[in-house]
Design a protein around this nucleic acid. Structure first.
Lengths: 217, 217, 217, 217
DNA sequence: GATGAATGAGCATTCATTCAT
DNA sequence: GATGAATGAATGCTCATTCAT
C-alpha cells in the first residue's frame, strides 16, 4: 500500500519533472524546432524515459496546457463562489483572475493559445483531447456565469452570456498573443501587457453594459 | 526597357501563380504538413522554380500575408479618407472593413495571425520582414486615426489611440482564431463568425466611449 | 541436495513457463514484431526475470526449437527400435512420425525452419547452438538409418542414405513452409497440409525405390 | 520523345543500380540487420534517393525477388513450348531449368524463399504484392502443365497436377534452404547443392510415376 | 528561366538489456 | 530471486534545398 502510493507519487513527480523541462525548452524553441532529445537533456533523462510517461511529442506538448487550464478553472470557480458580490466586483475579480493566470505562466499560456489553433490537437489521444476540451469548455461556462446578471439588473439570456464569454476569452487570447508578438518579433523592449489587458477588460466591461441594454430592447 | 518591363510583369505573374497555389495547399494542410512539392505540383511547376521566386519556404509562407495586409491597409485608408463623417459612422465603416478583410480570404488571414506568433518571422529576410512590419504598423496607425476624435468630442491622446487600436486588432484576431479553432477542433458545425465579430465590435465600440470618459477625467 | 534439486526443478518450471508464453506470442507476431515485454506480460513476469533464465531474446527464440527437436528425435528413435519391421512399414512409421511432429506444434515447427535459415543462429551461445546442431544431426541420422535397407533388399551406401535423409527432411520443411505461406499470405482458406505431406511422402517413398536401383547399377 | 525515352531508361538503370547494391548488402546481412544507409552507401547514393525509386525498405527487398521470378517463369514457359517432347525429356528440361534458376542468383533465390514465409509480404503495396503472386502462381501452373501427361500415358487430373507442382516447388525450396543453412550455419565447407537437387528431382521423377498409377487405380 | 533528380541532415520513436532496490 | 524503471543506441524515412542540364 505504502509502496504503491510512493511509486505513484514518484511517477507523478517524473511527469512534472519532464513537463518542467519541456516548458523550459518550448519557451526558447517552437514545437517544431524543439527535439525530444533537447527535452530529455533538459530533464536529465534519456529520450526513452519520456515515452514512459508521455505517448508522444504532441501529447507531451498538449499536457503542458493542462496545468494552466486547471489553474484557470479553479480561479474562475472561486470568482463565482463569491455569491453576494455586485456585478461590478465580480467582473473586477474576473479580470484579476485572468491577469493572474497570465502571470502564473506566460509561456505555457501562449503555447496553449497556439495549441488551440494548431493541427496538433487533431491527432491527440481521445482521453487527453477530451480532458482539454472539458477544461476549456468549463472555463468558458464559468465566465458566462459571471455575466449572469447584467450590470443594470438586466438578465442576459443564456445565449448572450455564452457569446460574451467567448468574446471575452477571445479578447484575452488576442491581447496576449499580439503583445507577445510585439515583444518577440517587433523587438519592442517593454511591453505593457498587464496595462493593456486591464484597459482591454475595462473597455469590454463598459461595453457589455451598453450592449446588454441594446440587445434587450 | 519594354523588354525589362514585360519580364518584370511576367515575373510578378509567376509569383502570384505560386502564391495562389500555396494558398490552396495551406488551406488543407498546415505550414508544417504542406511540402514544397505539394505547392509545386499545385502550381504545375517544379520545386526548383519556386526557389527562383521565393528565397525559401518561410518567405513564401510569409508572402501570403502581404496581400491581405495590403488589402487591409487600403480599406483602412479608405475609411479615413471619408473625413467629414461622424465618429459613429467611421467606427461602423471600420467594423465593416474588418469583416470584409476576413471574408476577403479567411484562410490567409488565419495564417497571418499564426505567422504573427510563430518563430518563422525571426528568420525572415530583413526586406520581407520590414515590409510586413511596415504594413502591420501602418494599419494599426490607421485604426488609431479612426479613433482620433473620441465619440464625445473628447480628444484621445496619441497614446490612448494607439492602445485602443492595438486592443481592437487583438480583439479581431482573438475572435477569428477562437472561432476557427471551434470549427476545426471542437467540431462545431456552424460557427457564426460574422455575428460574433459584429457583437465583439459593438461591445468594443460602446466600451471605448465610456473608457474615454474615464481616462480623461 | 534436496533443496538444490527443488530449486533446479523450479527453475526448469520457470523456463517452461516462459517458453510457453513466448510460443503464444510468436504465434501471433513474428520474431521481430514480438517484444520481450510482450512475452513478459504473457508470462506474467517482468522483463528482467526473463533474463535470469535466458541470455537474450535470440536464445529464448532458439530454445523454442529445442523442445520440438527433442520430440522429433524420440519419435524417430522409436521408429528405428521396431527392428524387425519391413522397410515399407518402417517408412510408413516415418511418415506418420513426421506428420505427428507437425501436429505436435505447427507454430514452433515453422519457427524452427525459419531459424534454420536466419542469421540468428550465428550469434547464439556455443552451448545452445551445439545442442541444436546435435539434435538436428542426430535426427537426420535416424532418418538415414530408416533407409538402411533399401526396399528391394539393396543396401544403400552410407552416403546415399544420408543424402536421402537430407532430401526427405528438405521435402518436409519445404512442404510445411510453402503451405504455411499459402495460408497466411495468399489467403487460402483451407490448406490441406496433412494431405499434401502424405502425397509428398508417398512420391518420395516410391521414388527412392527406383532411385536406389539406378544408383546401385 | 527521345528525351522521354532516355529518362525512362536512366530511371530503370537507377532502379537496377539500387537493386544490385541491395543484393550485395542482403547477401551478407539479413533484411533486419541491413540498413538503408548500408544500401545507399553500397549504391553510392544518398538514402533519400532510394526512396525516389522504392516506396520503402520492404518494397525494395521484395523487388529483388521479381527478377528471379520473371526468369523462372520464362524458363518454365520455354520448357512447355517444346511440345512434341516425351514426358521424360520434358521432366529433364524442368529439372535443368530449376537448377539454372538456382545458379542464376542463389542469393536472391534464397531471399525469395525467406520472403515467402515472412510477414513482410503482408504490408506490401497491393501492386507489388499482386505482381509477385501472379508470377509465383503462373510458375506453379507452368510446372503443373509439364506434368500434364503422366509418364505412363495416364492423364493426371487437374487436381493432381497442381498438387504435384506444389510439392515439386516445395522440394526445390526445401533443398535449397536446407543446403544453404548447412553451408552458412553448420559450417560445412562444400555443399553439393547441385548434386543434391539432381538426386531430389530424380527421386521425385520416379516417385510421381508410381504415385500416378496408384492414384488412378 | 525551368527543371527535377539528388541530396543528406535531421528526428521521433522503439526496444533489448541492465541494475538498483 | 524478482522487479520494472531507466537506458540510449539504432534506424527508417522526410523534405527543404541545390545544381547540372
Amino acid at each position: 500500500m505504502g509502496i504503491q502510493e510512493r511509486k505513484e507519487r514518484e511517477g507523478e513527480r517524473r511527469r512534472q519533472q519532464i513537463i518542467v523541462a519541456a516548458r523550459r525548452v518550448f519557451s526558447s524553441k517552437s514545437l517544431n524546432k524543439a527535439t525530444m532529445e533537447d527535452i530529455a537533456r533538459e530533464a536529465e533523462l534519456s529520450p526513452g524515459t519520456i515515452y514512459l510517461y508521455f505517448k508522444n511529442k504532441d501529447e507531451l506538448y498538449a499536457s503542458l496546457s493542462l496545468r494552466i487550464l486547471q489553474y484557470l478553472l479553479i480561479r474562475l470557480q472561486h470568482v463565482n463562489s463569491e455569491k453576494n458580490e455586485t456585478p461590478e466586483k465580480r467582473y473586477a475579480s474576473l479580470t484579476r483572475a485572468m491577469i493572474d493566470v497570465y502571470e502564473f505562466d506566460p509561456i505555457i499560456l501562449i503555447s496553449m493559445f497556439n495549441l488551440q489553433t494548431s493541427e496538433t490537437l487533431k491527432t491527440l489521444s481521445p482521453g487527453l483531447l477530451s480532458e482539454i476540451k472539458k477544461l476549456a469548455c468549463k472555463s468558458i461556462e464559468e465566465i458566462a456565469v459571471i455575466f449572469k446578471q447584467g450590470d443594470n439588473g438586466e438578465v442576459l439570456t443564456e445565449y448572450n452570456r455564452s457569446l460574451f464569454a467567448e468574446i471575452f476569452w477571445s479578447l484575452f487570447s488576442g491581447v496576449v498573443l499580439f503583445q507577445e508578438s510585439k515583444k518577440s518579433i517587433l523587438g519592442e523592449e517593454k511591453v505593457f501587457l498587464k496595462k493593456t489587458l486591464q484597459t482591454a477588460f475595462e473597455i469590454f466591461g463598459y461595453g457589455i453594459k451598453d450592449t446588454t441594454l441594446t440587445q434587450n430592447k
